[in-house]
Simulated assay, not measured.
Amino acid sequence: MITAKSLTLDTPFTIGGKEFRNRLIMAPMQQYKGSPEGYATEHHIQHYARRAKGIGMVIVESTAVSDNGRLWPNDIGIYSDRHADALKRVTDAVHAQDTPIFVQLSHGGRKSAPNVTKRLIAPSAIAYDDSYGKPAELTVSEIEALIENYRMAARRSIKAGFDGIEVHAAHGFLIHQFLSPISNHRSDAYGGSRLGRMKFLKDVLAAIRSETGRHYPVIVRISSTDYIEGGLNPQELAMMLKPLAEDGLLDAVDVSSGGLLPIQPDDIHPGYQLPDAAVIKQHLQIPVIAVGKIYTRSFADRIIRDGLADAVAIGRPLLEDPDFAQKMIGLKE
């Protein structure tokens, strides 16, 4: 019998009914190798396949749901069937390692790359900084069109062979901009109260579910804090996420932080985001993923054993060493 105290990084776990062989996840990390049109390239095939062996799950880098929402000029996207066809080569290569792969669906909103963005948009006409410039406030019809972009991206994600979807609602991008009172000053149904500010995320998740059904894993990446008084905090995020999980719209939460404003945390130490993940986990009955300089097996095991999070995601070490996950898990050739 598996008890909480016997859980380790090796223990299988489930998200949305899908079982994963261990609790180590490759976090989404930008490659800056997409084609000018936003297609995944041979680099992505080799990069993800090389790092997939032994890890519990791969999450692909930010993948734009709209050509007007790319985070960088060399972002990849999934806003056409041709984009899905290019990504199918990536999922096939990762599946050859017997590893599940998720896509991270994103839209930059006011932080979309200026040199490839036709019209900068946001919940409210508030700039991130001078380099991005002031965005236009979205109309309700434009919001509805964006929700449709996410729905079609979900359909293409299934076509491309992804085993699940992570909705990017962190790091100051579009959904985060709706969630935070710092960037959302709307007075209509998509702003104001906590329920109003979470409506865009709820509508996006419902649109995605209309394509995936209930038993396809859908997770969300959130920023637990805006690092400023009056911004989001882990308690408020938990209250936003709880009804989404209870309604079956959400299967797990990936907890990061910051990005809404040009503010950095004072101390970036191993596990610096872990306390926020633990707070969120106290309120939810779905898995919580911790991330943030958790680079040793002993630390990861302790996090899982102590119930602070259900899984651990790593990013930068895998960029530097493709075999890092195998070493952390302790796999032998």
Results as ranks from 00 to 15, higher is better:
K18A: 13
I303Y: 01
V204E: 04
L249W: 00
L120K: 05
M152Y: 07
T139Y: 05
P114D: 10
G54L: 01
R23V: 06
G196L: 11
F173E: 07
P114Y: 09
D301P: 00
G231Q: 11
L205M: 02
P36Q: 03
S257I: 08
A113D: 05
G38I: 13
P114W: 11
G161L: 04
N68W: 12
D92E: 15
A96R: 13
D226Q: 07
E142G: 03
G77F: 07
L174A: 08
R297Q: 14
G248S: 08
T8G: 10
A278N: 07
L7R: 15
A290Y: 07
V140H: 08
G16I: 05
E211Y: 08
V140S: 08
A252E: 03
R110H: 07
D323K: 12
G259V: 03
T139K: 09
N149A: 02
I121Y: 02
H95F: 02
Y227A: 06
H168W: 10
I55P: 02
P234I: 10
H215C: 06
L261H: 14
L120F: 06
P123A: 01
A160C: 09
A93W: 04
M328F: 06
R186F: 09
I228Y: 12
L319C: 00
L195C: 05
S298C: 11
F178I: 08
G213H: 13
I286A: 09
R110T: 06
F162M: 01
V220A: 13
K199M: 10
D267P: 00
I126C: 03
V103E: 06
I158H: 00
L237V: 12
E148A: 15
P135F: 09
D81E: 15
I15P: 05
I121F: 03
E211Q: 15
A311D: 03
A86K: 13
P322S: 13
H185E: 14
G292F: 08
L174H: 03
D306C: 09
G307C: 06
G164W: 01
D188N: 05
E42L: 05
A170R: 11
